[in-house]
Design a protein around this nucleic acid. Structure first.
Lengths: 130, 130
DNA sequence: ACACGATGTTAGGTAATCTGACACAATAAA
DNA sequence: TTTATTGTGTCAGATTACCTAACATCGTGT
């Protein structure tokens, strides 16, 4: 059986992810709608999240806190998933678009006060022996 | 915030635990009824399981496969949780009872063919980086 | 002033889970 | 052999947790 269980395995219902990330269901669904995450679905269409999903959500939260918008975050994620740049394709992000994103990032609203987890914290989850 | 997340945190709904352990909901509830596990409950009374719970369930499954009965397993767990033996109390497990348990254990039905996880496998869950 | 982006909220629907009861096969006890 | 007991299956009826879709709101940027 190739049934190795991993960080990508859909284990968590949205309620738990809400607690873990301190995001509302609305927010989480909205981010999915904009393809920042793609949680699995049960047969009955309920979202099930992996630990990677939770990590991604925490990262989204960080970026938003720093003034990025969804489009910018998406761009970042997309770049990360393009292993190398085969720059033959006509990149259809205009200069204006890019500048806008950068501008928003640079003027960073920087409102840092969070009770919950932070990006990377998930590695702590399952280490110790209780 | 003392919000360290651990193996004891209730994260998993019963459906996922069923997949992970290859036990039926009936079995899982039955083991709870007999106090082998004590999963947390949501406000709405749904069971939520920790990784420790899953480990325990896998151990229960092993023991049952080896011919132990619920009472025996419970005894084992109880002993484990009694840090040291303060043998002043009148132990109310009769010799007969003890012998019965041992007998059952020794004649072990030993039907070993399992596709799923084994006790200890959970440590594999969240190590690697994808 | 207006449009847009991110989120709140509500309504109506359904999947997942709950408890409790009864059935049953395999074992143990009488 | 007959009669419990154990562990599990299954069903019914109730309730929770989740779903989508729509509209409301609040802040920011143009």
């Amino acid at each position: 059986m190739t049934n190795r269980v991993r960080r990508t395995m859909p284990l968590l219902p949205i309620s738990i992810v809400m607690q873990l990330t301190e995001l509302t269901a609305r927010q989480i669904r909205y981010y999915e709608e904009h393809e920042l995450i793609s949680p699995a679905r049960t047969e009955g269409n309920k979202r099930m999240f992996s630990l990677n999903d939770v990590d991604t959500l925490l990262e989204i939260k960080d970026h938003l806190d720093q003034g990025l918008n969804i489009a910018g975050i998406k761009k970042i994620f997309d770049m990360r998933n393009q292993p190398k740049n085969e720059m033959a394709e006509p990149k259809n992000l205009s200069d204006a678009e890019l500048r806008k994103i950068l501008r928003e990032e640079l003027q960073g609203t920087r409102s840092y006060e969070r009770g919950g987890l932070r990006q990377g914290d998930l590695s702590r989850f399952f280490k110790g022996n209780g």
